[in-house]
């Protein structure tokens, strides 16, 4: 787990280290208390996912399943095309992420590094739509996708997400922090705009790009509303849809539901643990400075 950069802490004589350690122990105890509160549901979920159908209802009384059934995890894949759901989620979220990062980075370059007449006006238009809540877009986007013949297809799941005013805004803010003298130096060195974009600005905007990619991927991986209204075909269901359907048809089989939902939670956790550093920095950068 990467540490956050050390924050300056004030040490005041008579408090903290030199003083009573009680407050420090209390802080640690508080952290532990909330930590346990955050952890317990997940621990319980693991136990439920390993129990037999009868044991799971008695779990609050036994405290631990008498027999462990790891085979529940395999059973999920037999009951529903869970692998397909996984694939769909990764496929859709992956493509949306790739496309969105590319289009947003390019647009952000145009907004932050090129001076062109009308730039501020067009950017203001982008900014203006950031205020519009997502629900306003749901209905007309549905109509547009319907009109383009993308209903009930990967296209319909991917294409509307491939552009984002927010992503453009975020990367623009990020690129504005890169000194313009670097582009100027590159221009004098003989680089054209595409080269400045790919070899100077993009590498330097990498933390911002990674943050956008993480947010975008996680958001689309968890996305529920849009697939719900767009997908009719069983083979196009993404994980959230699949889980909901699984729950409504096999809801009584708690261990299987828990095993399935636990598996669905693994990829975000892995991504988070790997890219924790960028994400924490990104949230702080994107929001506070933006």
């Amino acid at each position: 787990m990467p540490e956050q950069p050390a924050q300056p802490r004030t040490t005041i004589v008579g408090e903290g280290r030199a003083g009573l350690p009680i407050s420090r122990v209390a802080v640690f105890a508080g952290l532990t208390l909330f930590g346990v509160t955050a952890a317990v549901p997940f621990v319980w979920q693991i136990l439920m996912s390993l129990a037999t159908l009868t044991d799971v209802d008695l779990l609050t009384q036994t405290g631990f399943p008498p027999t462990l059934l790891p085979s529940n995890y395999g059973l999920v894949f037999e009951r529903v095309p869970f692998a397909k759901y996984f694939f769909n989620s990764f496929f859709v979220a992956g493509w949306v992420t790739i496309l969105q990062v590319i289009t947003c980075a390019m647009a952000a370059y145009a907004f932050s590094r090129v001076q062109w007449p009308g730039r501020e006006k067009v950017f203001l238009l982008y900014l203006g739509t950031l205020m519009i809540p997502g629900v306003v877009l749901m209905v007309p986007n549905f109509a547009v996708v319907l009109g383009l013949g993308m209903f009930n297809s990967y296209w319909g799941l991917i294409i509307p997400g491939a552009f984002s005013a927010f992503g453009t805004f975020m990367l623009r803010q990020f690129m504005l922090t890169i000194p313009t003298s670097l582009d100027e130096a590159a221009a004098i060195d003989g680089a054209g705009h595409w080269r400045i974009f790919t070899e100077v600005v993009l590498p330097l905007a990498r933390p911002g790009v990674i943050v956008l990619a993480i947010f975008c991927f996680l958001g689309n991986y968890n996305s529920f509303f849009w697939p719900l209204i767009l997908v009719k075909d069983v083979n196009l269901r993404t994980l959230p849809l699949g889980l909901l359907v699984f729950d409504s048809s096999y809801g009584r089989e708690t261990p299987l539901i828990m095993a399935a939902s636990l598996m669905a939670m693994v990829p975000p956790v892995v991504i988070f643990l790997l890219l924790n550093r960028y994400l924490v920095k990104g949230i702080q950068l994107g929001a506070v400075k933006g």
Partner: peptide, 20 residues
């Protein structure tokens, strides 16, 4: 004429070294 074709070189106040 584009800067790259003026046959000049420039040293910037903040040096503008490519950090990566």
């Amino acid at each position: 004429v584009h800067p790259k074709d003026r046959d000049i070189a420039m040293v910037f106040q903040n040096y503008a070294l490519y950090p990566h």
